[in-house]
Design a protein around this nucleic acid. Structure first.
Lengths: 242, 242
DNA sequence: ATAATTTATTTGTCAGACAAATAAATTCAA
DNA sequence: TTGAATTTATTTGTCTGACAAATAAATTAT
């Protein structure tokens, strides 16, 4: 069905609300290069004159753009295009998937596996240094080091320095942090984690994409199985309780 | 900076517009399970009474929700929650990255590499059949078969049957299709493509995640290098022309 | 020259009205 | 009775105009 629409390139027949048209036009200001990220948009009154629409219509449009993180409004000051590509809409999307823990975990794994492959090609010496530091800190630290573990994965995520991927992985990692669906401390074998981190680091250091992937796969697969097993156990427990 | 906000859990100090509050409350209707995807929202007048805000404020909120694809408005009929998790916001996000072809290609590769690993674990016999059909069609077809090539990758993308990943990969593939930044026909070696597709299929058939990844990596890496080389050549050409 | 105050601009919110679309109810005709 | 045409009522879509709140900029007072 959507195939048909995609193919015919018809702009969704109806649903050409004035506000939607305004949204498109404002985005067009960006795409055409007339305005750049960070630039100030004309004031509401000016935009009203430009687009020849009423204020509610304009405000609905800008309001939409704001919630998807394309512009930022400041009372009295004006409306600005955001300078960084927004991860906001994806974040909202994700928040609607809460509950589907399995999909989350899978997505996270898929992202990290793809990422580490890229990272192996692009990682900077600086980021490699950070990883090394991270591992050393983890070895030195007494007891658990969940925060360091998270940091390790974040460094890799950003080392691919790809804005689109960052927009995906960033809200994803945040969301997972929030849901607390991490590996419980009692299950963690710190020494084993460090060993795997070292393997990943070694593979990244020699810029070997495939070897990096293999190490990361072993690392994540191991963790995932435990998380999912625990999760399913909990679910069946919940069912039993009913 | 954002770290501080994240940590303190303060709702972004200011920017608590009425419409934003309404947005949160409506999303809350979903998260709390009071309403489900596909359900009809109360009419505007009812919502106005519920939230005790004016109509413009309510409409700004709903308008925002509509552009990020959480609700769907139909004149006279009402407003409904969308039943499928939306890929719309991500699509808009992506559209702001047009021009960064390299980031697109990289993202696509990262996604597919992660995906195929998952797919190997989850792919259904039905989808395997589709892949087989696809390969056979490609062998039978005279001349180029770009559409079939695209379909091959799409089947794999959906075979992981993960709604979050679908929301990412779907707009990404569409966007790449649109930008026409595919491998030019003259560069394509159909026989080679088919051979690689067969390898990927074989790996998926035996549900081997790592082998699937390796095949896919070879396949994509080969294509990518040519696309990026061509793209950079074009860029330097453009620069020369200036 | 600095601090306090005022002013003007811009976003934020509200109220009320009418237009447009259409689902549902009603009427009319076969 | 049934089916088609018409009317009605509801709901979204848009407009106008107004005032509130915030604050950058200008002005005034010390």
């Amino acid at each position: 069905m959507s195939q048909v629409n995609d193919h015919l390139k018809i702009k969704s027949v109806k649903r050409e609300t004035l506000s939607n048209q305004v949204i498109d036009q404002i985005i067009e200001l960006l795409l055409s290069g007339q305005l750049k990220p960070g630039d100030k948009l004309p004031s509401e009154m000016e935009l009203i004159d430009m687009f020849m629409v009423s204020r509610p219509v304009l405000r609905e449009a800008i309001s939409s753009l704001e919630t998807i993180g394309i512009v930022r409004r400041k009372t009295r000051e004006g409306t600005y295009f955001t300078n960084k590509i927004g991860s906001k809409p994806f974040k909202i999307m994700l928040s609607l998937s809460v509950g589907d823990i399995k999909a989350f975990i899978e997505t996270r794994i898929a992202q990290e596996l793809g990422l580490v492959t890229l990272a192996a090609e692009k990682i900077s010496d600086e980021d490699l240094g950070r990883l090394k530091d991270n591992i050393e800190k983890m070895e030195a630290r007494e007891g658990d080091a969940i925060e360091l573990d998270k940091e390790f994965h974040r460094i890799i995520a950003y080392s691919a320095s790809n804005p689109i991927i960052e927009g995906i992985i960033d809200p994803l990692l945040n969301m997972i942090d929030q849901t607390q669906e991490t590996i419980p401390p009692e299950d963690r074998d710190k020494a084993y984690t460090i060993e795997q981190h070292k393997e990943i680091y070694a593979a990244l250091e020699i810029r070997d994409p495939i070897e990096s992937y293999l190490c990361m796969y072993r690392h994540l697969d191991h963790a995932r199985k435990r998380i999912l097993a625990r999760h399913e156990a909990k679910n069946s427990f919940d069912l039993d309780q009913k």
